[in-house]
């Protein structure tokens, strides 16, 4: 699906650009993309390295396993394929917790760790497992308690009430997550 969309995005953009006479623009965009992505990479790479380091301390000290144990009761019904107290439950909960506080950049390394740990349990290494699908779904609908970046931006614009939309965000992310879990259960039963 990502494969198809990627191709469509690219082709649609190029064809539309050619029709409307933006072809110079397109050439420039293609060349600049490489530079842009390196900039994004330079931004996130140190954060990933930092959090993977801290995460390793949590793993070796047994803190992660403890967290996994505590949260496995909650997460187990969602991930029936994952053995109880498995380490990836710890990674997943760290990812979910970071997302709850709007720390997107800290959530990414935990999420990547969770995915590689789910891949170890996966039988067919080319096809997404059910747990992976459930995890990325919960991840993208991410229940947010404090949207840190958003509040910072609203403060920058001198809002009188920067946290005014926090409750709306919390409720709508909870509703979205519940809707996703229901859909996931239905789809999993059918396939």
């Amino acid at each position: 699906m990502v494969n198809k969309l990627w191709t469509y995005f690219l082709l649609l953009g190029i064809v539309y650009g050619l029709i409307t006479g933006h072809s110079l623009n397109i050439n420039e965009t293609i060349l600049n993309s490489a530079k842009d992505s390196l900039e994004v990479f330079i931004q996130i790479f140190p954060v990933i390295a930092l959090w993977l380091g801290i995460m390793n301390i949590a793993t070796l000290s047994g803190l992660l396993d403890k967290l996994a144990k505590v949260l496995s009761k909650v997460l187990h019904p969602l991930f029936p394929e994952v053995p109880k107290n498995h380490r990836c439950l710890g990674y997943m909960s760290s990812n979910i917790i970071a997302n709850m506080f709007g720390l997107g950049s800290a959530a990414t390394p935990f999420g990547l760790k969770a995915m590689s740990s789910l891949q170890e349990l996966n039988e067919n290494k080319k096809v997404a497992s059910r747990s992976m699908l459930t995890f990325t779904m919960i991840n993208t609908s991410a229940i947010t308690i404090i949207p840190t970046t958003l509040i910072a931006l609203r403060m920058m614009y001198k809002s009188l009430d920067p946290t005014k939309t926090v409750l709306v965000t919390l409720i709508s992310t909870v509703v979205a997550t519940i809707a996703c879990i229901i859909l996931d259960k239905i789809l999993a039963r059918r396939s």
Partner: peptide, 12 residues
């Protein structure tokens, strides 16, 4: 980033 940028900048 490549495909998304092309899509956005083309005006599509």
């Amino acid at each position: 980033i490549l495909s998304v940028n092309v899509l956005i900048n083309s005006g599509f």
